[in-house]
């Protein structure tokens, strides 16, 4: 399997990457870990004529503590996130989610920013990003902006990122208690259902991935939460656009969502 021809440019700084992206417009794709992009290019499902490799931009490869937030560079790999002491201590749920992704080799290459920008509806991070109310930091020709988790995921494989923007970092509020519970699709090991739940005061915040074309906050559960797991029955209230395939049809997937929300609430 060989991708169609393309030009490859390795950006040495964010500024350079942004300039290149502006220059090449629709023709270009950003290459980070490449673990979604390269296979789809090999299958010739994606045929960008320019790849802008941001993998070498070291300013996007750090994990830092900034007040009440942990700031994770978009280039951080799943392995970095799973094993970072800062993440483990302050946003443990994120390291749990990172450890559920793919396998050792995939975690060594795949990045947080890449995964979020790709917005695969069965990917793991969105549930945690939503539950934690993380903010996505993006930069484009008009400068830097932050996008709230709730506004970020817009449709199947579609986010609030503009064509000229690159995710540079994700800011996670510190979380005292959180859990990520996942039901694995047996072939791809992506999430049939992934539920992230965190404690916030007396309440909970719950993000759900895998179930719908767009990951969502289980607000009905959050509203009904009474300290027990009984609110889990509301996990699918108001959810449409439910994914159906030969591993899980709508009925079963909806059932799993309720089960995994319950498990998440019990694990909190």
């Amino acid at each position: 399997m060989i991708p169609a021809k393309f030009d490859y440019i390795k950006a040495s700084s964010l500024g350079e990457a942004l300039t290149l992206l502006q220059e090449h417009g629709d023709e270009a794709k950003i290459l980070s870990g490449g673990h979604s992009l390269i296979p789809s290019m090999k299958l010739r499902l994606a045929t960008p004529s320019v790849l802008i490799d941001i993998g070498g931009i070291s300013e996007m490869n750090t994990i830092t503590e900034e007040g009440d937030e942990i700031v994770i560079g978009a280039n951080c790999t799943h392995h970095q996130i799973a094993t970072s002491d800062l993440v483990r201590e302050h946003v443990n749920i994120l390291s749990q989610a990172a450890l559920c992704i793919g396998d050792i080799q995939v975690r060594n290459r795949g990045t947080l920013g890449g995964s979020l920008a790709h917005a695969d509806p069965a990917s793991d991070y969105p549930a945690t990003v939503l539950a934690c109310e993380a903010t996505i930091v993006a930069e484009g020709k008009d400068g830097k902006r932050t996008i709230g988790a709730n506004d970020f995921f817009q449709a199947l494989f579609l986010t609030a990122l503009q064509d000229d923007e690159i995710i540079t970092a994700i800011r996670f509020p510190k979380v005292s208690q959180g859990t990520y519970q996942k039901f694995f699709q047996s072939a791809s090991r992506f999430a049939v259902v992934g539920v992230a739940a965190i404690k916030k005061g007396d309440g909970v915040q719950i993000g759900v991935t895998g179930v719908s074309g767009v990951p969502f906050r289980a607000t009905a559960v959050e509203n009904a939460y009474d300290g027990t797991s009984s609110a889990a029955k509301h996990a699918m209230d108001g959810v449409d656009d439910i994914i159906s395939d030969h591993f899980a049809d709508e009925e079963y997937r909806s059932h799993l969502a309720r089960v995994y929300v319950k498990r998440a609430l019990e694990a909190l």
């Binding site: 699709q185 072939a187 395939d245």
Partner: peptide, 8 residues
């Protein structure tokens, strides 16, 4: 089920 993403 034509790839390892769908054939378990």
């Amino acid at each position: 089920s034509g790839s390892y993403m769908e054939y378990a």
